[in-house]
Amino acid sequence: METLSLVYYSPTGTTQKIVREIGQNTGLKLIAENNLAENNFNLQTETSNNSLTIIGLPVYGGRLPLAALENLKKLKSNQSPVVIVVVYGNRDFDDALLELKQITSDCGFKVVAGAVFIGEHSYSTDEKPVAKDRPDAKDLETCKNFAKKITSKLKRNKNLNKLSEVVIPGNFPYKERNQLPVTLYPETNNAICNQCGTCVDVCPTNAITIEDTVITNGELCTWCCACVKYCPHEARIFSNSTINTIQNRLYQNFSTRKEPVFFM
């Protein structure tokens, strides 16, 4: 391997941080990086056989985010190596990594390793934290160890065609997507909102517009909470009782720290 490409979907920067940390510790030359959650990505759909690709996606309810899949499926490879990574909010990754393996295999990649990492849950709050501030220093050190295992495996196995298939846990058919009602998007506290437009800029699905007030299209919102995280005035909030119930359940049942897992 000579070069490295990174592809990820990261509205809040969590998956980006993990994928970048893995990538920069492979020792390979970075030639392309695309965040599919941004509007200005320039995805090169063809990959060369001497280049390693790392693909990372967050887990939404045990599945991959639909907003990322259309562009992800444009990638084409002739059995070049890929490392697949999913990031979940300390509940469970369910079928997401298996789903990512199937998509990348269908695109022509050879899956040489997979991993699941933990990031702060989108619904985490200071009062009810779930994987607060993760990935942390320990997680980033684990990223380095994972990168070393990847490079060691690639050096030992020059002929990728002879590698056995990486076994990834999960179920098929995949679990059904749990779609929340379109009315449960983050709201805007107009008393402190100054219509700076940050929420518009960070929304990966263009669900937010500003006219006289901030308007959210609930059919486009994926509840990634980028607008909540990045609002400089903390004007984007969840005030819905259904979301509050979910936050309580997550805090009560999934606050115990979980650790990353590798599949080589």
Rank of each mutant, 00 (worst) to 15 (best):
T53M: 12
I55S: 14
I55N: 03
I55F: 10
I55V: 15
G56Y: 06
P58A: 01
P58N: 06
P58E: 01
Y60M: 04
R63P: 08
L64H: 06
P65A: 03
P65K: 05
L66I: 15
L66S: 14
L66C: 10
L66N: 15
A67I: 02
A67K: 00
A68N: 03
A68H: 01
L69Q: 13
L69H: 08
E70C: 02
N71M: 13
L72Q: 07
L72D: 04
K73N: 10
K74V: 11
K74A: 13
L75E: 01
L75V: 02
K76F: 07
K76I: 09
S77E: 13
S77K: 12
S77D: 14
Q79C: 10
Q79T: 12
S80L: 05
S80E: 10
S80C: 06
P81M: 11
V82G: 04
V83M: 01
I84H: 09
I84K: 08
V85Y: 01
V85R: 00
V85M: 00
V86S: 11
V86F: 01
V87R: 07
Y88T: 05
Y88E: 05
G89L: 05
G89Q: 07
G89T: 01
N90S: 13
R91Y: 02
R91P: 03
D92C: 13
F93K: 12
D94E: 15
A96Y: 02
L97R: 01
L98A: 09
E99I: 06
L100F: 14
Q102T: 14
Q102F: 12
I103A: 02
T104E: 04
T104M: 14
T104W: 07
S105G: 03
S105Y: 01
C107T: 09
F109A: 05
F109E: 00
F109C: 02
F109R: 10
K110L: 03
V111K: 04
V112K: 10
V112H: 10
A113K: 12
G114H: 04
V116H: 15
V116C: 13
V116M: 13
F117R: 00
I118D: 05
G119K: 04
G119L: 00
G119S: 01
G119W: 00
E120L: 14
E120A: 08
H121G: 03
H121Q: 02
H121M: 03
H121P: 03
S122E: 09
S122A: 15
S122G: 13
Y123N: 01
S124H: 03
S124P: 00
T125G: 10
P129H: 14
